[in-house]
Amino acid sequence: MEEYGGGDLLSEAMGSGARVVVVEDRVEAPGAFALHLLLKRALAGGGAAALLALAQPFSHYDRVLRKMGCNLSLHRKSGAKGGAISDSFVRLYGDIQRAIDASRTGDNTGRFTLMIDDVSLLEVAAGGSVDDVLDFLHYCVTLTSEMNCSLVFLIHEDIYSSEEGVGVLLHLRYIADLVIRAAPLSTGLAADVHGQLSVVNKCTFREQRLKAQRIWNFHFRVKENGADFFYPGSRY
């Protein structure tokens, strides 16, 4: 994974081997750009991905990723598919499983990434039934061990900041190997710095963890063709 992205801070912080990545964002600091970066990385080098696009139409991802140098339409047949959510999670899970199976046939045994944009809309689609959403997410987690699949979830953190509904967020944080949290600057909006990112790496099954850092904090600036990551004050 490191060879793509040219050793920026985010890929350094992410390391390798994270199976479940959770991207958290807020109204003031959208984290969709991190999802786009991860999608690009997932598709690079012969990887396959399934994108459960609830927030935006497929054409949006297509055009954004095209600016980042990744042609999503070309990849589309190889498993990246958008579309509306079906009424039943069972059928949705079946679709995902079939997509993974299809991508594994033949000599293509690369990594498969399942991305969900975003989990809070999954809840809306389920009519507010948190249990159904959690069941579905846990089914997805089983894919990581069975099918050499990794997961990327985007979730809006501020929805769950009140006490009544922390359920989904806490569960996601628990199953995550890596949490990428986008937050606005406390000093307000700026044109040069779009927010700060904190990455919490929970990968404990690698020998590198002894020397690796667990928590990273840095600033980011979103660009059309990617994003810049830098330590506070180190750039301007």
Binding site: V27, E28, P30, H60, V222
Partner: peptide, 18 residues
């Protein structure tokens, strides 16, 4: 102004004043 709509871009619009 909290958010400004964007088409086909991931870059957020940062206004001079909100």
């Amino acid at each position: 102004v909290h958010k400004v709509a964007q088409t086909n871009s991931q870059v957020p619009v940062i206004l001079e004043a909100s």
